[in-house]
Nucleic acid binder design. Structure first.
Lengths: 335, 335
DNA sequence: CTGAAAGCGCTTACAG
DNA sequence: CTGAAAGCGCTTACAG
């Protein structure tokens, strides 16, 4: 067995020695220190030496000195991530990397207080998709860490940065169905209690849109993701008076389950009931009939979330949320 | 505007003072230092003081001292993540957290050498889903960092830890179709060149299974994720001699596109062509007909990946990969 | 069993 | 314009 020989790290001192300057100067050059005028020649010498030695500053050391890391902690609710959220996280990771920040995700569990995690990790910022107690937010801020909330925030929260206007999703769904002439709508969500807060925001937006458009309030029902559950609900709609003609689905999964339930009863969209989903799952285009849905543009959302963080960390006010730009209506055949 | 007052951190010194011992003892107690016998009373005093002060050790300081962080760097190929991979990452994050490790993901881009990232971050381990040069692996190991590869590794790699046997997926697909009496098979993948290495591994497994079962080699075709592209291929199958009766789809998206293509030509599964997918996407159960597919059990896979890391970091040999346990055949109607 | 001290690799006031 | 020095908060060999 050959022992693995580990080489000593290249440090700023090595670069300094190679460039014939002090560590101080190396740091100034490498960090583009403002208020510091370095002659071009010195700067070049340092950069050249750093390149030659393949120097990478150790982030742990920098963090210890600065008091915080270059990490952004994303706190997630403790349930399986929707596809849409996975995509947002994926994009956000890339956007933050572009800003020199690393994303770390954690599910919010009662067993591990958020504040402890923050103290241990010393992140540059915290973004929470989970409800946070105002006192929790205050404690984190007291430690000097920037905190933002996203996607699902309650109105009385200390935080004012909602990124994806969930209510807008519900409103868009209603507007599209209304434009197709539907005046009796029904909302279908999942029985899963873990998505209820998100459901409530979307439903709220739908209700307000109905009010604006002078439609009756939508009826509401929750289903499981099974053919039987969906078929049972569809059967109920057929008997109800007034009979709904437009179906607002919580997401594409629900929408496709409803389409399957309709099919099992010999019904089809949009003739019997028009159905609109949310998420634009890849498979939705192949649903029978192809699903009309609302796409959450994860690139736009992630970029905005990254902006909130970078501005927030710098103590500046983040740019206004791009509201409708975050959504796209995808019209196919189901509505 | 009220200025935000930031409180000084609670450090090990504070705990030491409160407990009436030295920092050394605090560290010994909190880290359960082996070879160190601390009387129960001292231990209790320290633990109590730490709890009372809500002390959380700063990971940056610990990392600087130890020479590496508690971070695991997961290197991803630079293309959109499949749903299956997102789920694996989600589970892996939780499994590693249980072991006191933090997962950070990075897409492998030529612009940023992996070695630089490793030097800067000083992770406890690197897991790569991207092809790594042997020299790159050697350089990283020279720095004392444990490296493992997963999912897609080439046979001549320095790394020997393949976690999800992609070839097995292809083999299972063939075995299921063969058991249904299909003897002429065809493989359908995506035109997208970014998935070709994964495709090749699965296809390879399918071919070997055909050999074992004494079937003809499957024909191979790539499609785009559009109805037209799928329909064109289905039309071609109808004319070809020998005519395939079983379709091995690269994943559920391809499978559902094929089903849609068939439907557009008045054909249906499994009567005209039996179709089997991979991934068990949530919407696959509502495909027409419901899709038979292979589920990659992300929990099992993630746990094994986490084991590889924890054993590897400790310098021990990781347990054998749970091969077939990582897969489940989901039989529905399409095959 | 316990503690004083060194040192991990940075950044940044401060002095020149 | 540049550098010597302090110090961020830990862990751990070493001495008692």
């Amino acid at each position: 067995v050959k022992a693995v020989e580990t080489r000593r790290r290249v440090t700023a001192s090595d670069v300094a020695r190679a460039a014939g300057v002090s560590k101080t100067t190396v740091s100034y050059v490498l960090n583009d220190a403002p208020d510091q005028s370095i002659p071009e020649q010195t700067r070049t010498r340092v950069l050249e030496a750093a390149r030659r030695l393949s120097y990478s500053p150790l982030s742990a050391a920098r963090a210890l000195r600065r008091g915080h890391t270059d990490t952004v902690l994303l706190v997630l609710p403790d349930w399986p991530l929707s596809r849409a959220l996975s995509l947002i996280i994926e994009s956000l990771t890339e956007e933050l990397e572009r800003d020199g920040l690393s994303l770390v995700t954690r599910k919010h569990k009662p067993s591990r207080p958020l504040l402890d995690m923050v103290r241990e990790m010393a992140p540059a910022a915290v973004i929470s998709l989970s409800e946070l107690e105002n006192s929790e937010v205050a404690d984190i801020r007291k430690g000097g860490t920037f905190v933002a909330a996203a996607l699902l925030t309650s109105p009385d929260s200390l935080l004012d940065t909602v990124v994806v206007p969930q209510a807008l999703i519900g409103a868009w769904q209603v507007q599209h169905l209304a434009a197709q002439g539907h005046r009796q709508l029904t909302y279908v969500a999942l029985k899963d209690p873990r998505v209820s807060s998100c459901r409530d925001l979307r439903l709220d937006g739908a209700r307000r849109a109905c009010l604006d458009l002078d439609l009756d309030m939508p009826t509401v029902a929750d289903i499981d993701l099974t053919l039987e559950s969906a078929a049972t609900l569809v059967r109920k709609w057929r008997r109800s008076r007034p009979r709904p003609t437009g179906v607002l689905a919580y997401n594409d999964e629900v929408a496709v389950a409803v389409l399957a339930g309709m099919r099992s009863l010999g019904l089809s969209a949009p003739g019997d009931f028009a159905v609109i989903g949310v998420d634009n799952e890849p498979l939705s285009q192949f649903a029978v009939p192809p699903l009309t849905t609302i796409d959450q543009r994860h690139g736009v959302i992630a970029r905005h979330l990254a902006d909130i963080v970078t501005y927030g960390v710098a103590g500046k006010t983040p740019p206004q949320a791009p509201r409708s730009e975050a959504l796209t209506l995808i019209v196919r055949e189901s509505a």
